[in-house]
Amino acid sequence: MKYLLLIASDPTLPSPEPGDPGFDEYMAAWTQYTQDLIDAGAYDSGEALQGAETATTVRHAGGATQVVDGPFAELKEHLGGYYLIDVDTLDDALEWARRLPVGEGAIEVRPVFPTDMS
């Protein structure tokens, strides 16, 4: 069963930039996390996203489309990245979400529609 881990965090909170002290450790934690997912056979894909200020929203409504600057929801927390993982149950997915090395933030765990009904 695949689960999408949507990682959201508050962009106003400081996070280390390249060259900052602690940046290497920060990145190492993410690399390690990804490696752990791969080792467990749970990794499908995952990416980090550029900031929400780079987002553009295409809205379909009433048969027309509209292109708007910004993310589709104005929230305190912004979507910062995702992992698509493949595990047996929600408990496994929640455990992976718990282990994500986000300092402060929230992870929405969404089951993906199964393609085979086995």
Binding site: M1, D88, T89, L90, D91, V109, P111
Partner: peptide
């Protein structure tokens, strides 16, 4: 979401 009936960790 496949919430399991197994004993949790």
């Amino acid at each position: 979401a496949r919430i399991p009936l197994t004993l949790p960790a």
